[in-house]
Every structure is written in C-alpha cells, then in structure tokens.
Simulated scan of single mutants.
Amino acid sequence: MKLAETVTFGGSGLDRAAHLRGDDAALEALRASNGARTIVTWRGKPLFEGEARDRLARLPLDHPMLMAEGGPEMLLGLEEGGDAIFARDMSGWTPDVLDASLMGTFLDPTEQVHPDGPEDAAFGELRARMTRITARDAELAATAKAIFSWHRSHRFCARCGEQSEMILAGWQRSCPACKTQHFPRTDPVVIMLITRGNSVLMGRSPGWPEGMFSLLAGFVEPGEPIEAAVRREVFEEAGIRVGAVEYLSSQPWPYPSSLMFGCRGEALDDEITIDPKEIEDARWFTREEIALAFAGGHPELMPARKGAIAQFLLWNWLADRLD
C-alpha cells in the first residue's frame, strides 16, 4: 500500500541510534551536548506545550523540572543535525490535585501541571492529540509511552523473580541474579477490513460509547501467520469465513504496546453469528453508510476515531486507495 506509512505513529524517519545504546562514553557526550533534549512522560501521558498543548515539549537536560524529580531515562534517538533526544519518566511525582475517577478512562480529559515545568506545558492524554501533533512528535511520544509502560510492568525477572535492572539506555533489562536478558515486549495484533461486495464488516465491544463500531481485531497467537490470524479472529468473533487476505499497513499502538497489522480480506459469506464473549455486536455497513458516518450524518454509526488505523483503512477504502 503506497500510503502505508502515513498512518498515525507510522514513523518519521527517526534515527534510533541503536549502535550507541551500549556505549557509555558516547551517551555521556550526547548528554553534555548543548543540543540534547528530553521529552517527559507521567503515568503514560507526555508533556505537551503551547497554547493548544499540541506540541511535544523538549526540555534541556538540566531543566529544573528534571532536577526536582528522579526517574528512568532512555535514549530515543538522534534528531536531524545529530542532537540526541532522550525520554524521562516522572511517574513518581504526585500532583497536588488529582481526579482519580477520570484517570485511565477511555479518553482521560485531565491535564497535570508540574510546578517546575514550562509555563505553557502540561501532561496530557496522547490519544486526544495524536492527530494534531507532527509525525516526529507522534513517533517519539508513542515510543516513550510504550517503553516506559514495559519497564513498569516488567521490573522483575520472569525466570528467577529477582528485580531486574534497566540497561542499554532503556532498551533492555538485565537480571543481576541469573543474568537473563529481557527485551521490550510488542504484541502483534491483526485488524482487518473485511468486505463483501459493497459492504464492510464492523463490530463493537461492551462498554464502548453508543454508536461506536470499529474493524474487527485480535491478537496473533504464537506460531500463527498473520493471514491465519485474520481468518481465525473473524470467524471467532462474527462467524464469517474469510478467503483471500492481504497485508496493507502497520501501526505502532502504545496502549500499552501493540503493533497493529492492517489487513483486508474477502468474506465468503455474510451471515453473522457473534460470540458474545468476544464482542457485543457486529454488522455490515455499506460504503454509503460509512461515508455518511464520516460526514457525521449517520443516525446509528459514529465516525471512525481519527488517528486509529481502522479510520485510516476505512478512509482509504472509500477513496479506492488501498493498492
């Protein structure tokens, strides 16, 4: 698919500088450079700045905010010109005011302002801003969010139970007891545009907002090819047999650490039989209905959520640009 890498989080050409992650001298030289900057996250929320809070904040490494709060640091890569960009996690900080009832909701609307942060900066939900920030900001924020989430959930060695240590500038953990090495986890997920004639198959999960449907999706199992995962998931969730399957595009999805494989498949039948343990509902929608939903005029179907690969695939299906 020619437009594959234009999907949100699709990549910005960042030089991730993997060859420098284990070079302590090189890392110190990068930190000492005047151009070195760090982005900051707090409980999965990046620090944004600007009047609309739609620009990823890049702080000098000696910023008072970083001096006040400890937290793990990782090397994200090199910006154009060779300046290093790091990431710091400040999840140990506790705001004076915190509405816990909204934390972790589908779209957390709250913002947290650090007393030592830039005047126009606040921690905010990435999902709400992912379509308004640059491709580079999106890649940096998604990478930091996913890696720090992995560090928080994998503090102990899976082999012996000893607390492991972060090494290689944040890209690996090492167990001091049994010497097992642990690497960041990425969960492969298939999400599929299943069509039959002029219609596309969509489903919804329990608890979603009223009118919200999306393309069917599911995790790839160990030892399973992507194409087989597409056919299995569609049959398990909706009882639909799928024939030919084609890969279209991928999207890193840091909620918490998935890699979405966007595919299209041809349905061999159209009689839906849902598994209520998997999804709440599934329906066929015509091209005309999807177009109406994108325009905000469908009485039962909300527009596909901007930034998600489902929206990207549906939009390009409507425009006949999947090749």
Rank of each mutant, 00 (worst) to 15 (best):
K2T: 07
V7S: 04
D23R: 06
D24T: 11
A25F: 09
S33L: 00
N34C: 02
A36L: 07
I39W: 02
I39K: 01
W42H: 14
F48C: 11
R55V: 14
P60S: 07
D62C: 03
M65F: 06
M65W: 03
E73C: 13
L78M: 12
E79C: 09
D83G: 02
A87H: 06
D99K: 05
E111A: 11
H114Q: 06
A122R: 11
F123A: 06
L126Q: 01
A128L: 15
R132F: 08
D137P: 01
A141T: 07
T143Q: 09
A146M: 15
F148Q: 03
S149F: 09
S153E: 15
R155D: 12
E162M: 09
S164V: 14
E165D: 07
M166H: 01
A177K: 15
F183E: 10
V189N: 04
V190M: 13
V190Q: 13
I191D: 02
L193P: 12
G203Q: 15
G203V: 10
G203A: 14
P206R: 13
P206E: 13
G218A: 13
V220Q: 13
G223Y: 06
I226M: 09
I226T: 03
V234E: 01
E236F: 05
A238N: 06
S250C: 12
S250E: 14
P252Y: 10
W253V: 02
G265H: 11
E266V: 11
D270A: 14
E271I: 09
T273S: 14
E278H: 10
I279D: 03
R287K: 15
I290A: 04
A291W: 00
A293G: 08
F294P: 00
G297K: 13
H298V: 04
A304F: 12
K306N: 05
W315S: 00
N316F: 03
D320K: 13
